[in-house]
């Protein structure tokens, strides 16, 4: 564990708490893409299935349980409890165009042709693109509540910090993980536009609005 990875994991945790806070406080999931949240639930389930047969540490296990549990809880909140506030009209990204290529890529580019490795690779590829429905929805709405932008910032920063963690681990331990590295770069890259507007608007006290 190093400071980059710890901070990254804490940012990831924070992003989920911010999202839960947004939904509970406003009693609404307006502006949140259900499709992205569904994809995250799928990401966590396919990656952390090793929870049952691979022990790393108590920290690792508790985090895995939290990520699976909270993602399913958010799906429940959006689909059942606050269903009326969900706006599927704006959530129009075609996730099959994401799921199919990720599945195909996982079958071709993996560390071993075993169910566990294929599922792991799939989860890493899917995570890289899982934010796309959310960013697409943001684009269509043209604006976002400030708390939603904090959620997106924390979520984007998490993978960005992992890049620093990987540089550090390569230098300190000779650790190499090409699949996670390339997917992590893509994932962080998708946030560039968002980070720019977050920095120039939200951090200066303005509303998050996209140019018309």
């Amino acid at each position: 564990m190093n400071i980059f990875r710890l901070t990254a994991d804490l940012m990831h945790l924070a992003s989920i708490f911010i999202l839960l806070l947004k939904i509970q406080k406003t009693r609404s999931c307006a502006g949140i893409s259900f499709k992205s949240q569904l994809l995250y639930a799928l990401v966590f389930i396919t990656r952390y299935i090793d929870l049952f047969f691979y022990w790393v540490s108590l920290y690792n296990t508790l985090m895995k349980i939290f990520f699976i549990g909270s993602s399913l809880y958010i799906v429940y909140l959006m689909q059942v409890k606050f269903r009326a506030t969900n706006d599927p009209v704006l959530d129009t990204f075609r996730i099959e165009y994401l799921l199919a290529p990720c599945a195909l890529l996982a079958l071709v580019a993996n560390y071993a042709f075993t169910a566990q490795e294929i599922l792991w690779a799939f989860s890493v590829y899917l995570e890289a693109g899982a934010i796309l429905p959310q960013l697409f929805m943001l684009q269509r709405r043209g604006e976002a509540e400030t708390i939603t932008t904090h959620y997106l910032f924390a979520l984007g920063a998490y993978r960005g910090l992992y890049l620093l963690n990987w540089i550090y681990r390569y230098w300190a331990e000779g650790y190499v993980d090409w699949i996670a590295w390339i997917a992590g770069l893509v994932q962080t890259g998708l946030y560039t536009d968002f980070f720019y507007i977050y920095y120039t608007k939200v951090l200066k006290g303005q509303k998050f609005e996209l140019p018309a």
Binding site: H12, V56, Y111, W178, A180
Partner: peptide, 10 residues
């Protein structure tokens, strides 16, 4: 095939 790195990250 390349060996799989230790899966100790989240």
């Amino acid at each position: 095939a390349l060996g799989s790195p230790v899966k100790d990250e989240l």
